[in-house]
Design a protein around this nucleic acid. Structure first.
Lengths: 299, 299
DNA sequence: CTGAAAGCGCTAACAT
DNA sequence: ATGTTAGCGCTTTCAG
């Protein structure tokens, strides 16, 4: 087409306000530019990070991101036709969901350390090693009675982090005191009751390692209320390094989980699907972030 | 169709794994089941609430929600065809965006107190009255030197909340001390420097009213670091009642902004568009939530 | 280089 | 009660 003609066309396009119909394009092309992110009940702060990461990568390549809250076991929404999907824990283990996605021919990526059938790939970090690194930090500081607040059984991460806790104790020649392990639900409220129980023990633990930041923030509140100074009388550690960790006072020592990058890599895998064939696996690095809530125990 | 036939058909559908093509449906129907929520740079915690509200209402009616991060002044993504859009502050004032939406024939609802041309409706709360209620609370407690951390000029809310602060002072017969007004950006970092400046004044204010929770959390941290006990030596008030407010220690006295409901009502307006004709306006109620950070000043 | 036509998969209207 | 057809707006292919 002559450039002169092209210009004339563009003029008319502008004058008439013509806009290509996306629906027709999608139908014709047999694909949309929409990626779904499915989640059920992760910590709010964690989800926020995931969203940012997914949005950044998706938008950069001209894709929109739809976030869908799914009840576990429930069917995915048929509402929109998706170019791909990202599964956030604990939905990463939802077999029915994955079966349904495969049947619809929707490629998906999971934020999980296991490999599932049919996935384009999965992205993860080494939760167990990270938990061990935190424990080394605590033990290195001189702590011996270290309590642990585990996450819900439904989240694969819960098991890995707890395994890291136990392994570290064993490696340091310390015995595991089951009464020092409480189970929470990755939210603030459950952290409150777990911490209350743990701090009521005698002798009291000198450190509490909560397996996510929300629960660690709750430990902080309970400690303050019982007049315990942090970190002098009680060390507190979290996990995830969500924005909450640095906003709380004292700022939390935690494990920086690259949630944002994980989401961004996951979306990237979906976009690059054309290239690759066999499922990919990405293991992203974590980082121990020492802030103000951990110190050597008194006495 | 006979029910017997219907059953036979369903069987075949199941056996062949037939699934209706959404693209074709959308094209045929001339509309999608996707609603866009546009935002630029609100507080993370506030955005989280908005997302929950939008998701709840949308998903309940079988609509998906796409969140789009837009640079201010930038064009909306052409990626997906939307059934409607919700504009989050400060994008509510973006004329170019609205023009572009109107041209594309996409109905939109704004989270703003002003009425804009072409919108289906807007939903809001009375920020100024809410700020006044918080001030009455503080003044009633006996505070006279009350500092204020305002928000960024780009957010309409900033002006309203500040106006409420000033009006309350005047109503109580107190003069406005401009050196007691700092400006932040609705985030934690800016709250840190604003608080540092304010607490360095002599005489020191007995209360600081931050115009959102993130900045109020920063005030808490600065107060702790300078050895000021909250609320005995310094009262702190926030605004929004995001999840952060109750997770921080001490828990924040704040204004409960019904962000979640605002988003849900906004999505509802879009869905009910068929019914209504002239732009609607919804004003949702706020609520003063007194928690642990405010008390009568010492002396 | 420009113009015409077929077809993506669905649904609503019409004919049997 | 069932079967057929036209057309949504785009893109790709083929013909002129």
């Amino acid at each position: 087409m002559r450039s002169e003609t092209r210009i004339r066309v563009m003029e008319v396009v502008a004058r008439l306000g013509y806009r290509a119909n996306q629906h027709a394009r999608n139908l014709r092309a047999g694909q949309s530019r929409l990626i779904g992110v499915f989640y059920s009940n992760p910590s709010r702060n964690y989800l926020g990070e995931i969203q940012i990461g997914a949005l950044q990568r998706g938008n950069a390549e001209g894709f929109s991101i739809a976030f869908e809250h799914l009840e576990e076991g429930g069917p995915p929404r048929g509402g929109a036709a998706l170019a791909g999907a990202v599964l956030i824990p604990p939905l990463t283990e939802d077999q029915a969901l994955m079966a349904s996605l495969m049947e619809a021919g929707t490629p998906f990526v999971r934020l999980s350390h296991t490999l599932a059938e049919g996935e384009v790939g999965h992205v993860t970090m080494d939760d167990e090693a990270a938990a061990q690194e935190m424990m080394r930090h605590l033990i290195g500081l001189g702590h011996r009675r270290i309590a642990f607040i585990a996450g819900p059984l439904s989240h694969p991460q819960s098991h890995l982090r707890e395994a890291g806790y136990r392994a570290s104790l064993a490696a340091a020649g310390l015995s595991v005191d089951e009464s020092l392990i409480a189970r929470g639900a990755f939210d603030y409220e459950s952290g409150l009751s777990a911490a209350t129980g743990l701090l009521g023990r005698n002798p009291c633990p000198t450190a509490i390692f909560a397996s996510n930041d929300d629960m660690a923030a709750a430990v902080l509140a309970v400690a303050f209320r019982s007049g315990l100074r942090v970190p002098q009388q009680l060390s507190v550690a979290g996990f995830d390094d969500t924005p909450l960790a640095s906003v709380v006072y004292p700022a939390l020592t935690t494990i920086s989980q690259p949630s944002r990058e994980m989401a961004s890599v996951a979306v990237g895998m979906l976009l690059d699907k054309r290239t690759s064939e066999s499922p990919e696996k990405a293991i992203l690095p974590y980082r121990l972030v020492v802030r103000e809530t951990t110190a050597a125990p008194e006495v």
